[in-house]
Simulated assay, not measured.
Amino acid sequence: MVDLIYRSEAAKLSFMAGINNVYDRGVMMFVEWSMFFIFPMLWVGVLSWAGMSVGSAVQSSLSNSTQIAQSAGSEGGNKLQGAATKMARK
């Protein structure tokens, strides 16, 4: 891409013809700047957002599964305590 822009005849003819190429140089500088700064920042932002979403989903599923296990354990403990109380009364 750099070869195509800077091999043009306008860049080689004279100082005045080179002024026409200032726009091309500006575009190239913007593209290079965005490739080194803007695109990596966007990429890191997208990966951070995806990581937060996956982490939130995993946390939600783990908390739901522990609530189910906790309620099952509590219910089993209550039944066992009731059975032990009945055995102690006899």
Rank of each mutant, 00 (worst) to 15 (best):
V44G: 01
M29S: 11
W49Q: 14
M41Y: 09
V46M: 12
G51Y: 12
F37V: 12
Y23M: 06
I38E: 09
M28G: 03
A10K: 00
G18S: 14
R7I: 01
G18D: 07
S48T: 14
S53N: 07
G26K: 14
S8G: 06
Y6P: 02
P40R: 13
Y6K: 05
G51D: 10
F37S: 09
F39K: 07
Y23N: 13
I5P: 02
E9F: 00
V22C: 05
A50W: 06
I19H: 00
W43A: 15
G18R: 15
S8L: 02
V22D: 01
S56D: 12
V44W: 06
S8K: 04
I5Y: 02
F36Y: 04
G26W: 15
I19W: 01
A17T: 13
R7T: 02
S8E: 03
I19Q: 06
L42T: 02
W43D: 10
W49G: 06
M35N: 08
W49D: 13
E9Q: 12
M28I: 09
N21G: 00
N21T: 03
L13Q: 09
D24M: 04
S53Q: 12
F15N: 09
W43N: 09
L13N: 04
W33C: 05
W33H: 10
F37D: 09
A50C: 13
A50T: 05
I38N: 06
S48E: 12
P40V: 12
L13M: 10
A17C: 11
A11Q: 04
S14N: 11
S53V: 13
E32A: 08
M52Q: 09
D24A: 00
G51Q: 14
E9G: 05
V22Q: 02
M35Y: 00
A10D: 06
F39N: 06
M16A: 09
L4V: 01
E32P: 07
I19T: 05
A57N: 12
F30N: 05
